[in-house]
Amino acid sequence: MQQIIDFILELDKLKGVTRKTRPLGLERQENSAEHSWQIAMLAASLAPYAAEPVDINRVVAMLLVHDIGEIDTGDTIVYAEDGWEERKAAELAAVTRIFGLLPAAQAQRFMSLWQEFEDGETAEARFAHAADRAMPVLLNLANNGQSWRENGISHARVVQRIGPPIQSGCPALWDYLVERLAHAQQQGWFGAD
């Protein structure tokens, strides 16, 4: 029991990891715990639109564990272009440490889910990636491009980074976003790279 409690209390630190996007109607940045919860709910809501049949419980579990490494590494904006190999190595070390707080069988289960998300090869992982990439876009669209403008992110970079994973995992969601991203571009909601 103590190992599980230690793990859960360690996860509380995810609430202190800030991201670049603001929650609707708030002046503060969202945190990674909020992001993980929201994308899990997004995926659960979008399950009928997945590109392939998925085990939604597995998808939700993946989304709940995929950013746990940020407890040690912090968050990197999805549109960053350099340093991904180093970042992923640091996240692997972090999740190994954090999941290692649990009894071995539970640690292995969570590590397998984390790795499946990272590999992105299963239908569940592709759908999870679609939800993960879509949520910051949806918040930016609702916030007049707040983090795109503040961080100098262009329309082209957004489409290049989020288009393929969303189209692969949830084509209907990508179809929905294409039109809205074009409108956002017309509104001047993007930065200049």
Rank of each mutant, 00 (worst) to 15 (best):
I166V: 15
E70Q: 15
L113P: 02
E91G: 05
P23M: 13
S154R: 07
D75H: 12
H155E: 04
V95M: 04
R19T: 15
D132F: 07
I68Y: 02
A134E: 02
N151I: 08
L42Y: 03
M1A: 12
S147H: 12
A44R: 04
N57Q: 14
R19K: 13
S168F: 03
V17W: 01
G25I: 10
N57G: 11
I77S: 10
N140F: 01
V178Y: 03
S147E: 12
R22H: 12
G163R: 05
D175L: 12
D12H: 10
L92D: 10
G191W: 02
G120Y: 06
Q185E: 15
N144T: 13
A61D: 13
P48D: 05
I153C: 02
A123E: 06
R109M: 12
A107Y: 03
A90G: 13
E150R: 15
V59Y: 03
K15A: 15
A90V: 09
S147I: 07
A125Y: 03
A33T: 06
A104W: 11
E116D: 09
R133W: 04
A40R: 03
L102G: 09
E116N: 02
L46K: 00
L14E: 02
I98A: 10
S147Y: 08
L24Q: 10
R133Y: 12
I8P: 00
M135V: 10
W114R: 08
D72Y: 13
R180E: 07
P165N: 06
S112V: 08
V95H: 03
Q160Y: 05
L138M: 12
N57L: 14
E10F: 05
T96C: 09
A128N: 06
A184H: 01
P53S: 03
E85N: 11
L14W: 04
